[in-house]
């Protein structure tokens, strides 16, 4: 088809509708986030100043622009609490992402090696939990992990433990929550990469005397690299900014940056600080985000 031909009127509209929508409601708001991060908190409605308007004339507007400052950024950088929250988010998200990979890999491999007529059903089963409410899945783990929860009940009644384990309200619970919630995002790209592999490669390797373990490390894993990479990004990026999981499963001492942002915004009503935190979070995620986009585009071309 017309690879480089100018777009016709209808085509222009078809492109413009989603493009304008995403520009207006996704891209443009970030300019506002930046602006408010440069503002000062105020006891007003909305709770920051200055607010720009042309009613007072150009000169007043220009003066107000002059009052924007990097104070809030300096505050966020200077305060150890925010740094600790960033680092702890990165650490928890990284550990959880690796755990997800460790659980998803054998599962995806078993799915990819299952008889052909099973596979569609297995994939459906693996991604169906993604469709059930996120909150409900976290709620399920509260039920399981609480001091008087089902896991402790079971272990106590079997006599395996004599005092209840305290997993709930710890970082461990947050890790379990992330792994459980994001597992489908890891399974899908892994399965796609593993399913594409030609089984005759493994046969050839074993004919040449390779042990199953050798062929696993020299054939299966390297060929699944693109899937592994996609899965890592799909889990890691949203996990860093996660709010619901640390809030419901973590303890009061579980620091995660999404939770910090939420508290600044809703509890402290400090919009400039929340915005500055969001900007830092975005900067932190820009490299993995770019990588993810590149992958998606390569995938789309294929």
């Amino acid at each position: 088809m017309s690879a480089r031909a100018p777009l016709s009127g209808l085509r222009r509209m078809v492109l413009a509708a989603p493009a304008l929508w995403l520009f207006l409601f996704f891209l443009a708001p970030f300019a506002l986030v930046l602006k408010i991060a440069l503002s000062k908190p105020a006891i007003a409605q909305p709770p920051y100043e200055p607010t720009f308007s042309l009613i007072e004339g150009w000169q007043a507007l220009w003066d107000k622009i002059g009052t924007l400052s990097f104070d809030t950024f300096a505050l966020v950088i200077g305060d150890d609490l925010y740094l600790a929250a960033y680092l702890s988010s990165l650490r928890l998200a990284a550990i959880a992402t690796l755990l997800t990979l460790l659980i998803a890999f054998p599962l995806s491999l078993a799915m990819a090696r299952a008889p052909k007529h099973w596979r569609t059903a297995l994939v459906m089963l693996a991604i169906a939990p993604f469709w059930t409410s996120f909150l409900i899945r976290i709620y399920a783990w509260i039920m399981l992990l609480k001091e008087e929860g089902l896991i402790n009940k079971l272990l106590l009644s079997l006599g395996i433990i004599s005092t209840p384990l305290s997993i709930f309200a710890t970082e461990g619970a947050v890790l379990i929550g992330i792994v459980y919630s994001y597992l489908p995002f890891m399974i899908l790209p892994l399965y796609n990469a593993l399913e594409r592999q030609d089984p005759s490669l493994l046969e050839a390797a074993s004919d040449l005397g390779a042990t199953p373990l050798t062929s696993f490390w020299t054939i299966t894993v390297p060929l699944a690299r693109s899937g592994i990479f996609a899965g890592l990004l799909l889990v890691f990026i949203p996990a860093v900014g996660e709010f619901v999981i640390p809030d419901l499963l973590g303890g009061s001492d579980t620091l995660m940056i999404g939770r910090t942002l939420w508290n600044e915004f809703f509890d402290n009503r400090d919009w400039p600080t929340a915005s500055a935190v969001a900007i830092f979070l975005l900067v932190l995620l820009i490299a993995p985000l770019m990588n993810y986009e590149r992958q998606q585009m390569k995938e789309a071309v294929r």
Partner: peptide, 15 residues
């Protein structure tokens, strides 16, 4: 698709 929801939500609200 992957952007943390707190960022999308905050940006929209400010808009």
């Amino acid at each position: 698709l992957v952007m943390p929801e707190v960022i999308i939500g905050l940006a929209l609200l400010l808009l």
